[in-house]
Design a protein around this nucleic acid. Structure first.
Lengths: 207, 207
DNA sequence: TAGATTGTTAATCGATTAACAATC
DNA sequence: TAGATTGTTAATCGATTAACAATC
């Protein structure tokens, strides 16, 4: 239940994965205890904000000492629901689809790509690493069968809205969209965007 | 000069590429005039916000009518400095580097990938589409020669900070980082992040 | 003219920060 | 104990929205 903790601002939720990522690196470095001050310096944000954010979910630190990194990692994973592994599908077997199908970074972060779909007969049946590209026509059925909740859209912008509509109809609840277009989805469906052009254009103003 | 317009909040600058993207789609659809209301509906934000954002830079609309799409596209491109084409380099010739080197979406959006670097001898000299992978050891020199200002980091997280340091030393002013790690860069250097895991983790809280 | 929509102001809403008592 | 750092409050800061005169 997302409201287990009451109404947490979305902007706070958005920072938790950032904290988690930094804390996991600390673990990797055998850095077992940290403080809001240290974490803040690593991330370039204020210590007060980190303490305030964490305090929305409980009391995880100890005065005078700080936070046990391993405990905080475990706790954050539980809070944002990546203490389990989510099955994820990819729609679109072009360059982007290939890239994310093979991306090793999902491992141990709560996600596992399990299927890749495309509607191009020339691509259906071909292999991408361990995956055999499946026919988009069978997508809805397979989403329902597998009770899949998360999808990544890697089709051209012109097809993205149609794909999103199909995904939502099939029961998908969270979409990561790589197509450079804003999609309309019903309330309650999560959507995030990755568009390198937008990121670059956010910076050129300052150049 | 970024302060041609005074001190515009960063959050406003960040929305301009979103407006631009939507307006360019309208052009594509031969949709020549729009209003803050219409644009707001497409983007799922408020019309007042769009008008307020645009008004920071001038008066581009007409009461009773709205905005000329083509004029607004041209104006936004000038404001965020993508009315010219920026040369961009990629560091890292792995899967991600391959993907962005071949990504067609930069065309006509103000960016052109011109070089790909890697420090792996097995990769140097190999081809990625039209690019020949160049030796990272020659990177700084080539950045200076070409007066390049923008770079995309596509190396493993363990190498990303070192690469960023080198880029900054060579004169790079804007970095798009695909490595899943927060980087430290000096003030005045722009940095943006793309990490699909973070985006997915922002959504699972609500599932 | 009547209707529509801008640009802008003031009010509201929300997020961040500074400060500090509590306490390890 | 003395020093350090949390969790939390209240103050500040900033962003969004509602409303409307101006005007096309």
């Amino acid at each position: 239940m997302a409201d287990k903790y009451g109404n947490i601002p979305n902007i706070v939720i958005g920072r938790l994965p950032l904290y988690l990522r930094a804390l996991q690196y600390m673990l990797l470095e055998n850095h077992l205890v940290t403080s809001s001050k240290e974490l803040a310096e690593r991330l370039g944000i204020s210590a007060a904000q980190i303490r305030k954010d964490l305090s929305q979910f409980g009391e995880f630190g100890k005065q005078g000492t700080g936070y046990q990194v391993e405990f905080l990692v475990r706790t954050l994973k539980q809070i944002i629901h990546v203490d389990t592994t989510w099955d994820v599908i990819i729609i679109g077997a072009g360059d982007i689809g290939h890239g994310i199908a093979r991306y090793p970074g999902f491992n141990n972060q709560g996600f596992r790509v399990i299927k890749v779909f495309d509607n191009n007969p020339a691509k259906i049946g071909t292999k991408i690493g361990e995956f055999v590209v499946e026919d988009s026509a069978t997508m809805e059925e397979k989403i329902k069968e597998g009770n899949i909740k998360i999808a990544m859209i890697a089709v051209p912008a012109s097809q993205a809205q149609q794909v999103a509509d199909n995904l939502v109809r099939a029961g998908i609840k969270a979409i990561l969209n790589y197509a450079p277009i804003t999609l309309n989805v019903p309330p309650g469906i999560q959507i995030q965007y990755i568009d390198p052009v937008m990121h670059l254009q956010k910076m050129t103003y300052y150049l």
